[in-house]
């Protein structure tokens, strides 16, 4: 097939965009068609776009990446669909996207290589995001979220209204900006990066902040301290309704009031 630019091929519900330039690639395409199962999709070197129909109230998404970023944007207008865009940066990694009978979408990268994801979900989607190396970004979500980076990469949450947030990066910053809901639980950790939380000045939470070697800047919230050492602060702001755990071994902790 010659350079059929902008050419599109639909494989088992998955949209493949790109150009095929050799007989070998055509053969691979045919083999891909033969082996694709009814419930899963696999992408080679081409970008992958696929959407799943989900229930807006109970949608769930799990992404297991190897190397590469994961960006998730929640939108009120995006009701009932999870849209996944994957771009292979290098290597021969493969992306498998499936949906369970309960409706949860699972995306997993296998093989070797870098894949970047740009994903759109309904507001209340339950997220479980994982990458060995690469950034994770989540915006505007109201559902619970867990994000984990095994080695290097920053985690950034923007405009969140989630009742449960867990984030961990080994060697990157964890930045949270959003509401701390009553009875919510927020666990933000980084081994050698900083942990930075920005929340409204009326936030009501119980804080446990621990930094082994870094600075702790608690942003002028009026606090009632239960324990205060160079490495650990336990305190309550207001009635202490939400629970906030911040930890970094080598980085700094910043707690800021949203203007």
């Amino acid at each position: 097939m010659s350079n059929a630019s902008n050419g599109k091929a639909v494989v088992n519900g998955m949209l493949l965009k790109g150009s095929l330039s050799s007989l070998r690639q055509v053969s691979a395409m045919v083999l891909g068609l033969l082996f694709a199962s009814a419930s899963s999709s696999t992408a080679g070197a081409q970008p992958l776009s696929k959407s799943f129909t989900v229930s807006p109230e109970s949608s769930g998404l799990e992404v297991i990446n190897q190397i590469g970023s994961i960006k998730v944007t929640a939108s009120g207008s995006n009701t009932g669909k999870i849209m996944i865009n994957a771009r292979q940066v290098d290597g021969d990694a493969r992306v498998n996207a499936t949906q369970t009978q309960e409706g949860k979408v699972k995306v997993e990268v296998t093989g070797r290589g870098t894949v970047d994801f740009d994903i759109y979900v309904p507001l209340s989607t339950r997220l479980d995001l994982f990458t060995y190396k690469g950034a994770i970004t989540v915006a505007n979500l109201t559902g619970p979220v867990r994000a984990r980076i095994t080695t290097d990469g920053n985690i950034q949450f923007t405009g969140l209204r989630s009742s449960r947030v867990e984030a961990h990066s080994s060697s990157g910053n964890v930045v949270f900006s959003g509401e701390l809901l009553p009875d919510g639980e927020y666990r933000l950790k980084s081994f050698s990066g900083s942990v930075d939380v920005t929340c409204p000045s009326h936030a009501d939470f119980k804080l446990s902040a621990s930094s082994f070697t870094g600075v702790m800047d608690l942003g002028g919230f009026p606090m009632k301290f239960d324990r205060q050492t160079n490495q650990l602060v336990e305190a309550a702001v207001g009635a202490g309704r939400a629970k906030v755990f911040l930890w970094t071994q080598e980085g700094s902790i910043h707690l800021r009031r949203k203007p």
């Binding site: 190897q66 060995y132 621990s210």
Partner: peptide, 19 residues
């Protein structure tokens, strides 16, 4: 802190197993 670091180490290994 020691317990947190043990957890950190175990979690690193669990991550790799997950991959």
């Amino acid at each position: 802190m020691v317990l947190t670091l043990y957890h950190e180490k175990r979690q690193l290994l669990e991550d790799v197993e997950r991959l």
